[in-house]
Design a protein around this nucleic acid. Structure first.
Length: 550
RNA sequence: GCGCCAGUAGCUCAGUAGGAUAGAGCAGCAGCCUUCUAAGCUGCGGGUCAGGGGUUCGAAUCCCUUCUGGCGUGCCA
């Protein structure tokens, strides 16, 4: 908000001075407070087209800008930066504007209602969700919340891979465990089978419900029955983990259902019509290399079954048919080899593949006693999302997962995270919220809170620490837009930590509730209300609670 | 081999979209509670931004290249 105001003023000054300004310049917070509250590189960026030395241009601009009452001091530094010291009046005005707009002053219609489909987690329904899924859940959900807040029309979807090889293996694993329970000797458990304890639990549950009834069925019926049972149970497990994480999906799309609707045949015929398939070694191939992939890919295997790619492509096409213009997939690092063929298919079918956007979340490395924990679904060695939530809590887990850029590896130290009183910054932010709540409670008790805040209250704020807080608050509208646009939720945590640091510093230097000075107290309360609600908004966007006391 | 991602303080990571003297937390050291919550604050030390070249007024950021690490490179999903 402040940057926008300053930029506006600089533009006007440029105009009044008669300078050309075709290139864009920036207004930013300088690295050092000696350089002022804000600075702009306008003079350097525009010096060439105006055929003037940066410093001359800057000088002319400053002369003009000095007429503005919001600028206390202006000077040229370095190669031609214009450094700006703001008058308290501007901070006060901005705070007052935020107050008048209310808690959601940072909300906007930036996204213009664009329909965005966010697909994430989409874990195989063959076991409990692991911590990589947890990372995807936290990341995707936060991105969803922010996009919605700034005016997009996003939807969250979970694609269920409930057809294909892995489901057969799941059913076979379950059958073996069931036989085991019934006293059969099954020998060594097959390497490919799912080794996790949960398969045993499923078997016990099924055994309790149905005894050996399943073994009366024909083999085909039995496999179908086991599949159905296992899928339903596991999906329930996954859903409940996500519930605990406060992550909801607008839709769960089943691959099996898609297949039964005939989309597989449809997609195959589209690709054939587009003349980009051929037969080789009794399989049907897609000429993906012609469309930018490394090599051609199999669509239908020689045994007549379909590869994962076909229904997945069909699923993506339904997204377009349903009117989404941006398709965001949040994938794990092991999927990047897969994406070129998806893009290739988009191009082959005449769709703009730039509407497909992939965010790769790098892996989560789990550390215990300084050693990396090796996880494997197949071998059953896994730390689940539930384990994690149980140990560190939803708030800390969500915070931790979004605190890093998507394409950075995430090292998760279990011991560190299991300590409740650790240095996890989530406590730092929540503590700030609790502290402010406490101040406001105290003010209310002392009958210092006004019925209505007035502009005069804002005018009592003259301390640099107060201006710093207002400056940070004023960044929020732009920040949220950037988080949405660049798909970078981690910036929320950076901002929250900055704001809280400014608050804690302010807290230790100045008292808010000053018994002898009611008007000053009210000015400061006005600011504190705004800090608290902004923090609460951001914590909520991250899916983290904002406690009133700790 | 080829492709994708990464490499910033002892550790975990930011770095505002090309800007000024590269920042924070933790760890280490030294201080601060008769006041609205010390889960806090203040100060100190800590760097060849993996190496090299280029682009320009200006590079951690863009381009090229080398090195190191992770992942991918199935008629698995």
């Amino acid at each position: 908000m402040i940057k926008t105001i300053i930029k506006e003023q600089v533009r006007e000054a440029l105009k009044t001075c008669g300078f050309k300004a075709s290139r864009d310049f920036v207004v930013e917070v300088p690295p050092n407070t000696e350089f002022g509250d804000y600075s702009t590189n306008a003079a350097m960026v525009l010096c060439k087209e105006n055929k003037k030395a940066p410093k001359d241009l800057a000088e002319a601009l400053i002369k003009e800008l000095k007429k503005n009452k919001y600028f206390k001091k202006l000077k040229i530094d370095g190669p031609g930066f214009i450094n700006i010291f703001l008058a308290p009046a501007l901070y006060q005005k901005v705070l007052w504007e935020m107050h008048e707009k209310g808690v959601d002053y940072a909300m906007s219609d930036y996204g213009k209602g664009e329909k965005v489909l966010l697909e994430f987690v989409s874990a195989n329904p063959t076991g409990p969700l692991n911590i990589v899924s947890a990372r995807a859940a936290a990341f995707g959900d936060t991105l969803y919340r922010v996009m919605k807040y700034v005016g997009y029309a996003p939807t969250r979807e979970f694609y269920i891979n409930d057809a294909g090889n892995q489901v057969d293996i799941l059913a076979e694993s379950l059958e073996l465990r069931l036989r085991e329970i019934q006293g059969e000797r099954i020998g060594e458990f097959p390497f490919e089978a799912y080794h996790g304890e949960y398969v045993k639990h499923l078997a016990q549950k099924l055994n309790a419900q149905e005894g050996n009834r399943v073994f009366m069925m024909t083999e085909k019926d039995r496999m179908d029955h086991l599949k159905e049972f296992a899928l339903a149970e596991i999906l329930d497990m996954q859903r409940s983990s996500l519930d605990k994480f406060d992550v909801e999906f607008e839709a769960w799309v089943s691959e099996k259902t898609l297949r039964s609707e005939g989309v597989v045949e449809e997609v195959l015929s589209y690709l054939t019509e587009a003349d980009c398939t051929y037969e080789k070694e009794e399989a049907i191939w897609f000429k993906s290399e012609e469309y930018g992939d490394d090599k051609d890919r199999v669509l239908m295997k020689s045994d007549g079954s379909i590869t994962y790619f076909v229904p997945d492509l069909a699923y993506h096409l339904t997204k377009i048919q349903r009117g989404y213009t941006t398709l965001i997939d949040i994938f794990g690092p092991d999927h990047h080899g897969y994406v070129p063929r998806l893009r290739a298919a988009f191009r082959a079918l005449g769709y703009d593949d730039s509407m497909l956007e992939i965010i790769y979340l790098q892996q989560v490395n789990l550390f215990e006693s300084g050693e990396k924990v090796k996880m494997s679904k197949r071998a059953g060695k896994i730390v689940t999302m539930d384990d994690l939530i149980g140990e560190v809590g939803k708030d800390a887990a969500r915070y931790f997962f979004i605190a890093r850029k998507a394409n950075a590896h995430l090292n998760f130290d279990l011991e560190l995270a299991t300590q409740k009183n650790n240095e996890n910054p989530v406590y730092y932010c929540q503590y700030a919220h609790a502290r402010i709540s406490s101040i406001i409670k105290k003010a209310r008790k002392d009958k210092m809170t006004p019925r209505n805040y007035r502009w005069e209250h804002a005018q009592r704020l003259i301390k640099p620490e107060e201006h710093a807080l207002i400056g940070k608050l004023a960044e929020l509208p732009e920040l949220l837009i950037q988080v949405a646009e660049y798909r970078e939720p981690h910036r929320l945590t950076v901002w929250a930590e900055d704001l809280c640091a400014l608050f804690h510093r302010y807290y230790s230097k100045h008292r808010v509730v000053v018994a002898k000075n009611k008007e000053l107290t009210r000015g400061r309360l006005l600011l504190m209300e705004r800090v608290r609600s902004s923090l609460a908004v951001v914590l909520d966007l991250m899916g983290i609670s904002a406690p009133d006391k700790m």
